[in-house]
């Protein structure tokens, strides 16, 4: 792949699956790309294929290394995906963190340190979504794929989340894909926006 420029973090090459049309996409270091498209166009399925949670064709390279050449768990730590609804398997919030987040990291998303000792059932969906992002960022991924992460957030928390993600991407020279239906949000955070390609069956209709 001599065409790859050194600054390309993630190179998605003709990736396709059962529920989305083939996609090619390159993410440069420090770049945030917004993805949008009608529901049912397979945005989540596409992101799941990038982290190899879904069967797919095509190839994905992280800094020139193909997905299949890396063990799946280490790939997913480097290319991290935050689903629209994150899963919580233990009783307390703190048990879900590989390394506990600092008070500053929590505060940057408007959260208090005490939340780590609370039970998952007792916190709001907005808090869960911010904690989901944080538990992923403490693993220092090189690519973050965010599936409507601010859907349950108030405007103030939404702005905080945008700042945290953009700052992380710039500082670590990582890259992000952010699924967003809000044109104003895309204008605030996106270096580039991309419309989800339609599937063949939908083009014919």
């Amino acid at each position: 792949m001599s065409l790859i420029q050194p600054s390309v973090v993630l190179d998605v090459h003709a990736l396709s699956g059962a529920y989305f049309a083939p996609i090619s996409l390159q993410l440069a270091a420090g770049e945030v790309v917004c993805l949008f498209g009608v529901s049912g166009s397979g945005k989540s399925q596409f992101l799941r294929a990038v982290v190899d949670l879904e069967l797919h064709q095509g190839a994905v390279f992280l800094h020139g290394v193909e997905q299949q050449q890396m063990a799946a768990p280490s790939w997913r730590r480097k290319v991290a995906y935050l689903p629209a609804e994150s899963g919580w398997w233990a009783t307390r919030v703190g048990e879900h963190f590989a390394t506990p987040p600092s008070a500053d990291e929590l505060a940057s998303l408007g959260l208090d340190e005490a939340i780590l000792t609370r039970e998952v059932d007792g916190i709001s969906s907005g808090e869960r979504q911010r904690l989901g992002l944080l538990r992923l960022l403490v693993q220092r991924p090189q690519v973050i794929l965010l599936d409507e992460p601010s859907a349950n957030l108030d405007p103030e928390s939404t702005l905080k989340m945008e700042q945290v993600v953009c700052a992380y991407v710039r500082e670590t020279q990582a890259a992000a894909v952010w699924v967003s239906h809000d044109p104003l949000q895309r204008a605030r955070i996106a270096d580039r926006s991309m419309d989800m390609p339609l599937r063949e069956s939908e083009v014919l209709v």
């Binding site: 982290v51 949670l53 799946a72 768990p73 280490s74 997913r76 730590r77 991290a80 995906y81 689903p83 994150s86 899963g87 919580w88 398997w89 879900h96 590989a98 538990r135 992923l136 693993q139």
Partner: peptide
């Protein structure tokens, strides 16, 4: 819950 853990590696 299972996929959340797979997603964290």
């Amino acid at each position: 819950e299972i996929e959340a853990q797979l997603l964290l590696g």
